[in-house]
Write a protein that binds this DNA or RNA. Structure first.
Length: 482
DNA sequence: TTTTGAGTTGTTCGA
DNA sequence: GTCGAACAACTCAAA
């Protein structure tokens, strides 16, 4: 009634946090303010354009968020342009006194948001920012000697034992809209969905963006797959992973919410899957910990001796890898899964990344960029940290002689070839015995499976043993130089 | 300050 | 088929 007009007004700026629950910024204004939720279009993150798969997800996720906010009573306002201008204009229009957001952590965003906060504060607005993206503040967690952590295990021991499990904040029951209420741009005008051609079919069939879908997926996982997660998560031929990564990347769900849900299922009998999943979430924390403390992570070798590494300009090899035509079935299945669904199983990310950097000797940054463009869950920190780890250039990196054997990996983690058959249909009729080594299959068996190597499916682009030796000598060359 | 133990995810070879 | 050792040396984190 009367108090709707007497309450002050606040603007909440949504960014990497497309959710209404466990949203500290939103909760801070939900009760005592009339509000304007705004999302400002951003085509770049850290000087990179957003990949097509993520644009598709963003569109759907904004739809879901807008829907939720409309039901609460304060529709989402979409705007394009410079955040300072937009926020200041909105504040003027609605007589807002307070502006809030949840923090982001990629280096450019930290710089940008810090500057923006000081400008807006200088203009007389009360600006407050909140955590919400991670379980820890990357600049605050330190080793005993005051440095940031560079090795996962001690990092995780420290974080895992000190996490005070904040209870996730419930979503507000309702919101009071500011008055007057600003006009919004139309989401469809942002043209985030692909047209001509619309390649999003495979992605749309696999994913349901949005906060509600994220929580439904988590609940289903805890109920049906958590128990198998410890070993099952390594199997691309099974569906034992959470597939929560894109939901996390868009902030539709928080690590705190995941941990809280997991805790409900904690038993005295053993918590193998539960602890394994916490640990995986810990890897995301660690990647951001590294990125915040080492902003060059996405672009520069952490181990600088790799600046002299003889990477190859193998454009044919790069193309074969990108298209899933290397002749190694597990590699090709992974690369095609990525193109078709915007996602790749974690085990296969390692296999394909090892193949690019070690078998083809192509700079990890080429692979990082390709993953960034195609992954629906593309995460600046996880992507960069993981590529550097595989390439051997990064923090706590794999020893140089750790070169994945794509044949063994296929046989071990996709023993029946289920995964290969799903994404490399031209091999579907091949018996399991030969599914990971079609070039060794007897002619009669290839004929029966209607495969002519070199025609229906490529010969291996390079022999494994030869590639292994080549990679080992390439690594030896920079070791000698150093 | 020095010392010590440890470090996601592997492969190959030879007994 | 299975198993342990070798593949290197270095950096990190904590005692």
């Amino acid at each position: 009634m009367a108090d709707a007009t007497t309450k002050p007004t606040a603007i909440i700026w949504f960014r990497d946090d497309l959710r209404i629950s466990d949203n500290a910024a939103l909760a801070s204004v939900a009760n005592d303010f009339t509000v304007v939720p705004v999302y400002i279009r951003q085509d770049h993150i850290a000087n990179r354009s957003i990949g097509g798969a993520k644009k598709w997800w963003l569109h759907r996720s904004l739809e879901a968020l807008a829907d939720d906010l409309a039901k609460l009573g304060a529709p989402l306002v979409l705007a394009s342009g410079d955040p300072y201008v937009i926020l200041a204009n909105l504040a003027q229009l609605t007589s807002a006194s307070r502006i809030v957001w949840n923090r982001r952590y990629h280096p450019e965003a930290i710089r940008h948001d810090t500057e923006l906060k000081s400008h807006l504060s200088g203009d007389g607005f009360e600006v407050e920012t909140f955590p919400g993206f991670l379980l820890h503040e990357p600049t605050k967690l330190k080793t005993g000697t005051g440095n940031f952590y560079k090795v996962f295990s001690p990092f995780w021991r420290s974080l895992d034992s000190t996490i005070e499990l904040q209870k996730p904040i419930p979503a507000p029951q309702s919101l009071r809209p500011a008055s007057p209420y600003p006009a919004s741009e139309q989401l469809s005008d942002w043209k985030l969905l692909p047209t001509n051609p619309d390649w999003s079919g495979g992605i749309g069939a696999n994913w349901h963006p949005g906060e509600k879908a994220a929580h439904a997926k988590l609940a289903d996982f805890v109920e049906t797959r958590l128990e198998n997660y410890g070993e099952g998560r390594d199997r691309p031929d099974r569906d034992d992973t959470t597939r929560l990564s894109p939901h996390l990347a868009f902030g539709e769900i928080t690590p705190a919410q995941i941990f809280a849900k997991l805790d409900e299922g904690r038993t005295s009998a053993g918590n193998l899957g539960l602890d394994a999943l916490r640990r995986q979430v810990g890897w995301r924390e660690f990647a951001w910990h590294l990125l915040v403390n080492q902003p060059l992570l996405p672009t520069s070798n952490h181990k600088i001796q790799f600046d002299d590494f003889p990477w190859s300009d193998n454009t044919e090899g790069l193309l074969a890898w990108q298209q899933g035509l290397t002749g190694y079935p597990i590699v090709d299945a992974g690369m095609r899964q990525l193109r078709q669904t915007g996602w790749m199983h974690n085990r296969v990310r390692m296999i394909t990344a090892s193949f690019l950097t070690k078998h083809l000797l192509i700079d990890w940054r080429e692979g990082e960029a390709w993953f960034w463009d195609n992954l629906v869950d593309a995460d600046l920190a996880s992507n960069a940290a993981s590529w550097q780890w595989v390439a051997g250039t990064g923090f706590d990196a794999a020893p140089y002689f750790r070169i994945f054997n794509p044949i063994l990996q296929g046989q071990k983690f996709d023993p029946e070839g289920t995964y290969v058959r799903a994404f490399v249909p031209e091999l579907a009729s091949l018996p399991s015995k030969h599914i990971h080594t079609p070039w060794e299959a007897p002619a009669a068996i290839l004929a029966r499976a209607s495969i002519q190597l070199g025609q229906d499916y490529p010969h291996p682009v390079i022999d494994h043993a030869e590639a292994r030796q080549r990679a080992l000598s390439a690594y030896a060359s920079i070791k000698d130089a150093a």
